[in-house]
Design a binder for these strands. Sequence first.
DNA 1: TATGGGGAAA
DNA 2: AATAATTCCCCATA
Length: 571
Amino acid sequence: MQYRADNPLIVQGDFSVLLEAYHPKFETVRAELAQFADLEKSPEHIHSYRITPLSLWNAAAIGLKAGQVIAFLDEYVKFPLPDNVRRDIASYMGRYGLVKLLAAPPELSAAGKGRSFVPGDYLYLYSHDLPTITAIAGHKETKHLFASRFNDYTLLVAAGRRGMVKQALVKVGFPVEDLAGYIDGEPLHIRLAGTTSAGRPFALRDYQRQAADIFYANGRETGGSGVLVLPCGAGKTIIGLGIMSLINMNTLILTTSTTAVRQWVREILDKTGLTEDQVGEYSSETKNILPVTVATYQMITYRPSSDGPFPHFELFNARSWGLIIYDEVHTLPAPVFQVTAELQTMRRLGLTATLVREDKRETDVFTLIGPKKLDIPWRELEAAGWIAEAVCTEVRVPLNFALRMECAQSPEKTAYRLEAENPAKLRAIEDILARHPAEGVLIIGQYIRQLETIAAHLNAPLITGKTKNAKRDELYERFRQSQIPVLVVSKVANFAIDLPDAGVAIQVSGAFGSRQEEAQRLGRILRPKANGRGAYFYSVVSKDTREQEFAHHRQLFLAEQGYRYEIIDLS
DNA sequence: TATGGGGAAA
DNA sequence: AATAATTCCCCATA
């Protein structure tokens, strides 16, 4: 058996992959590996990834071939690639596209390419591989879903079961390539404005144009549904607008908050030819349903009784939508999956900075919204100067003897909180502030009490969920104007879009290991700075505690995107 | 039209 | 597996 010690990868028979973080080829290998494997852990020296069926299918969906994946692994492994892994990569990736859902029998489909979908009673589930289609027709989990066998290679599916069939098939290991097409929504001419209302010239950046084109696919059935993965600050909204201007139909946009709703409306009015009577906000305050309508997920998932109907599901049929945009698709709540399963004839665009969900519903995103269409690593945009270069540092502060004793005697949840609120963090914060005298610093934390202490000590203003919107705006504005050097904010920072850019962010406590949260927080500071300075992100944790472990979990996403944490030990 | 409280989500 | 905080909905007031 050959052993190549100078290579950075170990691939094990259970589909886990270990990557040496200090290997000279780390950057190259990581970028490639991330295309088809999910990061699981990233401690200091060895990062571990996992190859899953879903990660392979998403890779196949962006055009990667099994041969390329295997060749890449063969080149960088220390030990020969286990045979079962080699076989299964080929087998899983080969399965993507093996089964297709078509609007017409395959021989007719070829002739009708490019034509829009006419809703019929049945769709055609087709595979050129006889054993595959036979296995599906006979599988106990799926056989009841088909109306009949149309011919040797084709099963008939009731059109209304499109989403259900795809969900059932992915569960038994056959991801369906859905080429059945879409219903055209009501037409709406959407033109990108050459100049914004503020008079500045406006055009899509190259990668934004490219993302829009890949999604649209010239109107063919291969496009029209799927997810674009882009870092915060890369202009996801702009790409959404670009896609709207290619599709030119009534559009429904779903977002996470009313702030985000207003942001979308503002951007649409500013950067397209659409006018105020064409763009509606559907929120608790105003329920306008116009050719372009923007709503929140919470609105949609509201129901008066926990077993009753969802009154706002009506919105999906209120107009003939040609496109539904799911903003921050990784936060999409369960009931919206339900309704989306029924909406498979509509074009669907998912936008997100991360496909990682904390609830393991990645498969539903893949099946019901669509496969990943594009994944631009942060580092690439950083190199091109579109987002600021970021320096991430974990600062470890000691926990004093008395507190350690108290933690040892407390139940786990109290102990975690004690560690997070470690008063020694104050000194670390002061040290960090001293390093960045001339920059705006945002201090972010999870516990109000802790933040109150810090704010009082530094004589800095504090914003929490209870702070009135008017007050928030005023403080944000003064921070932007550099009248306030340090602003202390609670979890409001996670989703607040109107939060000003800062050169430096210090996280003093965080939630139980949410990776998304970390990404959101870093995203807050990742806009390119006018002065060309980088962005600094500090995470202050108590040394040798559970908190330190949780912090590692939170770093996962950043490591996935190619960042490495520096660690400073203050003991 | 604005404000505050309750409840639910995740 | 879990915490605490936040946000959003609706409805009841004025």
